[in-house]
Computed example of a mutant assay.
Amino acid sequence: MVFAPDTEVALRSVVNLINSVANGEEQLATTQDLDRFLTAEGFSGSRTRDAAELESVHRLRGELAALWLEDESAAVKTVNRLLREARALPQLVKHDEWDWHLHATTPDAPLAQRMSTEAAMALVDVIRSKEMDRLLVCAAEDCNAVVLDLSRNRSKRYCDTGNCANRAHVAAYRARKAAS
């Protein structure tokens, strides 16, 4: 394990949010899509379930996608801004099936604010641990999905959105066979 369990969960949610529009395929087109996403990611708290909420999550997705590509200094500025805008006040909480973990907003804060704060808190750990190089973009030439490398040997290079790793391995195999 590289990070605390709640940090890894939050980082995976960030990856899934960013990749919900990877390769031009919008997976959060409707509020019902957002409902399914939030259920799958285990998000709790208040919801408005309207177009404005969906749009705010889309804006957040864009900010987090940009942050994924930033260097440490720029990422720090973005993370600090997200925490400042949310007036984050970290607290230990226990709810639903989750054991003690950090929340930095109230359950009734707007959804995008809760999501951005959770992402920012997780990214604080990434930055403090000097692990920004674990935030990658898929190595497949035809894919722009993001990758979170939590492997012990830092070997993850392909996303989980499709068959990128399999396609790359098959292509390399075929190239070796053709060369021999």
Rank of each mutant, 00 (worst) to 15 (best):
residue 177 K to P: 00
residue 106 T to A: 10
residue 126 V to Q: 04
residue 150 L to C: 06
residue 161 T to L: 06
residue 106 T to E: 13
residue 162 G to S: 13
residue 115 M to H: 02
residue 130 K to H: 15
residue 158 Y to R: 03
residue 136 L to W: 06
residue 112 A to M: 10
residue 129 S to Y: 11
residue 117 T to K: 11
residue 138 C to W: 00
residue 115 M to P: 01
residue 140 A to L: 10
residue 153 N to P: 01
residue 136 L to C: 05
residue 104 A to H: 03
residue 120 A to Q: 08
residue 109 A to I: 00
residue 127 I to T: 01
residue 150 L to N: 08
residue 155 S to A: 14
residue 171 A to H: 06
residue 166 N to R: 15
residue 117 T to L: 12
residue 152 R to P: 00
residue 152 R to T: 02
residue 107 P to L: 13
residue 140 A to D: 15
residue 163 N to M: 07
residue 143 C to S: 09
residue 111 L to S: 07
residue 161 T to N: 08
residue 135 L to R: 05
residue 162 G to F: 06
residue 156 K to H: 06
residue 118 E to C: 13
residue 106 T to Q: 12
residue 161 T to D: 04
residue 145 A to S: 15
residue 147 V to A: 01
residue 156 K to S: 04
residue 136 L to Y: 03
residue 110 P to K: 09
residue 146 V to I: 07
residue 143 C to L: 11
residue 133 D to K: 13
residue 158 Y to H: 12
residue 124 V to H: 01
residue 138 C to D: 03
residue 130 K to W: 14
residue 154 R to L: 15
residue 116 S to F: 00
residue 172 A to P: 03
residue 132 M to K: 13
residue 158 Y to N: 02
residue 163 N to Y: 07
residue 129 S to C: 08
residue 115 M to F: 04
residue 155 S to C: 06
residue 173 Y to M: 05
residue 121 M to T: 13
residue 157 R to D: 03
residue 131 E to V: 03
residue 138 C to S: 09
residue 110 P to T: 01
residue 142 D to Y: 10
residue 146 V to L: 04
residue 167 R to P: 00
residue 111 L to E: 07
residue 132 M to R: 15
residue 136 L to Q: 14
residue 165 A to V: 00
residue 164 C to T: 02
residue 148 L to G: 09
residue 114 R to L: 11
residue 168 A to G: 05
